[in-house]
Amino acid sequence: MVIWGLNTSPNCCLCDLELEYRDHLFILCEVSTAIWNMIFSRLGYSHLTLTSWTSLQQWLSRKDSTSPRTLKRLAAQVTIYSIWTERNKRLHEGVMATPESTFKLIDRHVRDVILGRRNRKNFMNLMLCWLRHE
């Protein structure tokens, strides 16, 4: 936003410790990292750490036996959207949520999407996978 000439702080709205750029905001920020750790735990990954946007893309494209790719992609989409929403709430409304409360919102969104598509082939068993490591 600073590059576009907007009069705003260049620091991350989540932690105010680093400059805000894509990898920091969505992957490396301590707030984002805490949220991702909860997501990974829910998906059954115990030792997964993202280091960049590229590592996120690689994880999403990799097929593995821990979690279905459709669920990983759904969780990642909702997580990125939620981190961006949290950033905007802090910037524009001065309202801050904890990573735990953000995760609860992510959990609700993921459940709603799965329930709304439960009759589609790719979504039939996703709720069991999402809740398996609750």
Rank of each mutant, 00 (worst) to 15 (best):
G116S: 08
M127L: 15
E20Q: 03
C29E: 06
N7T: 04
W130N: 04
T8Y: 08
E86H: 07
C15E: 00
L6I: 10
N125L: 10
R120I: 13
F40M: 07
L6T: 08
L71G: 07
N7R: 10
D112I: 02
F123I: 05
L6R: 11
F26P: 02
H133R: 12
Q77P: 05
T66N: 14
W84H: 07
L71F: 00
R90V: 02
K121G: 09
C129D: 08
G94K: 05
L14W: 06
Q57F: 12
L17C: 08
D64V: 07
E134G: 15
I83A: 04
L126Y: 00
R117F: 03
L25D: 09
W36H: 00
W130I: 05
R62Q: 14
R62V: 11
T98Q: 04
L43D: 07
S67F: 07
G44P: 08
S46F: 11
S55C: 11
M127P: 06
I3N: 14
Y81I: 03
H109D: 10
S46E: 14
V31N: 01
L43E: 06
Q58S: 03
D107T: 01
I83T: 02
I83Y: 06
L126N: 04
R62H: 13
K89T: 01
K89R: 14
C13W: 13
N125E: 06
S101F: 11
K72R: 14
V110W: 02
M124Q: 14
L71P: 09
R120A: 12
L126C: 05
S9Q: 03
A75W: 07
I3P: 06
A76K: 01
S32W: 06
I106M: 02
Q77F: 15
R90H: 00
W130S: 03
T54S: 13
E86N: 02
G116Y: 02
W53L: 12
N88C: 08
